[in-house]
């Protein structure tokens, strides 16, 4: 049985433990960033950040402040389009580990042409892969496959203090996701699970995706 994540955004406090833990575990160097009027930094996913927390705020119909946090990462799609596109050019450049469900970029990805890389990036419905121009490799979340294969939690899930992130067998996570949705709906009637059937990383969102991030959900 493959694994899945539940990311319950209604529990996230944007402490960014996940963002930093991911970076540290993968030994990724720091980017030089600037303050541009938001806490969201680095501003986007990049070869040195496989995971970032996105911040977005708005006023609800009663004039109350709503501040949404979206810990963004690869969804490890059940049928990964990136893999299908990459396979057409270089088979094995992106693989899916059937046991865990992890979608992984391999060294073969270095053989992808500029055009192939662009095609893979454009194919992703969630705007995830980024090109590391130094290594000419696509970069993205690897589900901490090294940890998962050793029976450990992915670093982001392990680090999350508030229970916003869970990880486990897919059927257990689906079950948990439904339970959490039932609870959250009491307060947020519009809450939904973003594309449960297609992804291994299931987001529980309290309202429409425009209040989180354009690519928070496929639809």
């Amino acid at each position: 049985m493959p694994k899945s994540f539940l990311v319950d955004t209604t529990r996230c406090t944007a402490c960014r433990g996940c963002q930093l833990a991911c970076k540290e575990w993968h030994d990724l160097p720091a980017n030089e960033t600037k303050q541009t009027g938001t806490h969201q930094n680095p501003p986007d996913l990049n070869p040195y950040n496989y995971k970032i927390v996105r911040f977005r705020e708005h006023l609800d119909e009663k004039g109350n402040v709503v501040w949404n946090f979206f810990p963004d990462q690869c969804r490890h799609c059940v049928i990964p389009i990136c893999k299908e596109v990459a396979d057409m050019a270089v088979p094995g450049a992106i693989v899916k580990d059937e046991r865990t469900g992890a979608v992984l970029v391999t060294e073969k990805a270095a053989q992808l042409s500029e055009a192939d890389i662009k095609a893979v990036i454009d194919a992703c419905p969630y705007n995830i892969p980024r090109l590391d121009t130094k290594t000419h490799l696509l970069t993205k979340c690897d589900m901490c496959a090294d940890r998962v294969q050793a029976g450990m939690l992915p670093m982001c899930v392990k680090t999350c203090p508030t229970g916003a992130m869970s990880f486990g067998e897919r059927d257990e996570i689906l079950d948990l996701a439904q339970k959490r949705l039932d609870v959250v709906k009491q307060k947020h009637p519009k809450a939904y699970l973003a594309y449960v059937r297609d992804v291994s990383v299931i987001y529980l969102l309290a309202e429409e995706k425009k209040y989180y991030y354009e690519y928070a959900s496929f639809m």
Partner: peptide
Amino acid sequence: SLCAKGAA
């Protein structure tokens, strides 16, 4: 679990 600082 840890926060951003603890994670770094």
